[in-house]
Design a binder for these strands. Structure first.
Length: 584
RNA sequence: GCCCCGGUAGCUCAGUUGGAUAGAGCGCACCCCUCCUAAGGGUGAGGUCACAGGUUCAACUCCUGUCCGGGGCGCCA
């Protein structure tokens, strides 16, 4: 509906004044829903915006524009109001037409072609496979999955990707942590390194290694520890763990170390995949950093930067001249010890995304990655790619509460709450919806008690209940030996004149606009708030009026409306990854 | 010190890219089931949109500065 009005406006402006119509504002006139019903159904401020360029006062200009509007059966009348707004009052037929559209398009209603099939890569979660997903990753998963769904719904060609950091020092640390636990389980008295991963899951990794390798990789504690530098607190934990990794490779051989690493990695990845799968989060591709490395892409990227004079050597390391591309300092790409940094592979990875012809690269990252944005963009720019093609969305942190009691969390400590634990406690539906209730740039307080409560304080049930309520009405209808007659209902929508019916119609037909807003603002929470509003419109209507009445015209018109509401609720919940139950 | 995000009702938060009288939930005070699920609906009280300037016909929204809160600034990832 909104689009049609905007087209009418554009036509009016073109007919009125060709030079005026050429201005940027006139080319894309905007129409908005009126907040106050007295201001009609839609309103535009175009006359106010163009008044200066037209050398006219806004109200007079509004008059001329309104007069130039091509006649349209959907528009009952227009009115000039306030400082120069043009208010549109729609004909009842406009809502009737839109309601028929909901019934006709069903699960496709709300889907548009706004995105023009532009190729978008949404990379999200990408948690390091060195431990199970925690509640922060859960928010990124819910956000990324839903954003991708919404972008796809409004016509973007979306690919969902998870980048696996399965190369480099970090996974070596995972491997050596698992090996140390393995040695302990074999009865060797080796101290666990300060910088190792100390979660319980590492014990499981040790058990997996033992099942695969028996005691073949057991080495005496004395030979493991001989001549190593001191661990923290006396020594440097970073130096210590690197030395320990070197020792492990020497003692069991590079090949065996590789097998340990591979077993640990596969177990972690299987856990992460299963967790996300159960959470309803799916990826089109799991992109391995290790595979990127093997393909030579990182070497090629570095060679290209070298050729273009973007690299220099200092203090034994190789630096990328990031400051030449807007970053605040230059960045190391190859360390003094010859190891490439993660940043080097990030450059290659993002370049490779562009080579796969994605017009827009969206990275969904934790808020702690803020410093990373400028440098990856600098890398992309240095490669001759437009910096704007990269869009980084930072997700603020999650705090868990039990009532008003904050639950302590720490990533490296043994005690942290995993996504799996959270899902088990509150359920997937509440989990997805609670993660999405707030804007991504807002820290999230997640109250476990509230998420579990089956009261009206809990928005999950509120929305789902509205959906189930309509299903219940239909069951009741069948129980009374009646059936919904769609054609009759849609033919008599003019009977839906009550205040609650008008409100429900206005709300349910907003869905396509909400999806566009949510997509363009990267704001899934707008969809959540909308669904709450729609559920409220349904509950209010339900309490005020009876749907199953004897007059079949009225009955079917009302049912057409509530079934339309149910359809939109279902479409919205599906995008959020929340179930739409038939009964509760 | 520099950078990012936030500051809106007692609490938790929305606010349609600058519009008309700033909204919702919870909490508080009331009211509504012989009726399609009360996991629901309705009414009321509650605001200096952190503060000060600026831009504009119009500012919660944009710009500058100040104050407060959170986060980030390693040859870590």
């Amino acid at each position: 509906m909104k689009q049609q009005l905007e087209q009418l406006l554009a036509a009016a402006l073109a007919a009125l004044d060709s030079t005026l119509a050429a201005t940027a504002e006139a080319r894309a006139p905007t129409v908005e829903r009126s907040r106050d019903p007295r201001h009609g159904d839609f309103a535009t401020n175009i006359a106010l915006r163009l008044a200066k360029a037209a050398h006219s006062n806004p109200r007079a200009l509004a008059q001329r524009i309104a007069a130039a509007l091509p006649p349209n059966p959907l528009v009952l009348r227009t009115e000039i109001a306030g400082a120069g707004f043009i208010n549109f009052f729609l004909a009842p037929a406009a809502y009737a037409h839109e309601l028929a559209e909901i019934h006709a398009r069903a699960e496709r209603y709300g889907h548009t072609s706004l995105g023009r099939a532009e190729r978008v890569l949404v990379e999200f979660v990408s948690a390091n496979p060195t431990g199970p997903l925690h509640v922060g990753h859960g928010r990124q998963a819910a956000y990324g999955a839903t954003l991708a769904n919404i972008l796809a719904a409004v016509g973007f060609d979306v690919t969902r990707e998870y980048y696996i950091n399965d190369a480099g020092r970090q996974v070596d640390i995972l491997a050596v942590s698992a090996w140390m636990r393995y040695l302990q389980s074999c009865g060797e008295a080796v101290p666990f390194p300060e910088n190792g991963y100390r979660g319980d899951y590492v014990q499981n990794l040790a058990a997996i290694i033992r099942a695969a390798e028996g005691e073949d990789l057991r080495r005496p504690a004395a030979s493991v520890l001989a001549g190593l530098p001191a661990d923290a607190p006396a020594g440097d934990k970073e130096v210590y763990i690197d030395a320990l990794i070197g020792r492990a490779r020497d003692l069991i051989g590079r090949e065996a170390f590789r097998r340990v690493l591979q077993l640990a990695l596969e177990a972690m990845l299987a856990d992460i995949r299963e967790d996300l799968e159960q959470f309803g989060v799916r990826f089109d591709r799991w992109y391995s950093e290790h595979a990127l490395e093997r393909s030579g892409a990182i070497e090629r990227a570095l060679a290209r930067l070298e050729r273009d004079g973007r690299l220099y050597r200092a203090e034994g390391a190789v630096w990328f001249r990031a400051t030449a591309f807007g970053d605040e300092k230059d960045r190391v790409v190859v360390r003094e010890n010859g190891q490439k940094t993660y940043f080097a592979s990030d450059i290659a990875y993002h370049l490779e995304k562009r080579e796969r012809r994605f017009a827009r690269l969206i990275d969904v990252l934790g808020a702690d990655h803020h410093g990373y944005v400028a440098r990856v963009r600098a890398g992309l720019t240095a490669m001759g790619e437009p910096g704007e093609s990269l869009e980084v969305i930072l997700i603020q942190f999650v705090s868990l509460f039990r009532g008003d009691q904050k639950i302590p969390m720490g990533k490296r400590e043994a005690q942290f709450v995993t996504l799996r634990q959270l899902r088990a406690e509150v359920g997937n539906d509440a989990c997805r919806l609670f993660y999405l209730m707030r804007g991504h740039d807002q820290p999230l307080d997640f109250d476990l008690e509230l998420a579990k409560s089956r009261t009206n304080e809990n928005p999950v049930y509120y929305i789902q209940y509205a959906h189930a309520r309509v299903a219940s009405v239909l069951k009741q209808l069948a129980a009374r030996g009646l059936a919904f007659e769609r054609a009759e209902g849609l033919a008599h929508t003019a009977l839906l004149t009550g205040a609650h019916e008008q409100a429900a119609l206005a709300c349910v037909t907003r869905f396509p606009e909400v999806l566009e807003q949510a997509a363009m603002n990267r704001a899934p929470h707008m969809l959540v708030h909308y669904l709450r509003d729609l559920a409220n419109a349904l509950h209010t209507y339900y309490n005020a009026d009876t749907f199953i009445v004897t007059d079949s015209k009225v009955r079917n018109a009302r049912l057409a409306l509530v079934i339309g509401v149910q359809q939109v609720l279902r479409n919205g919940l599906t995008l959020l990854g929340v179930s739409a139950p038939e009964s509760m």
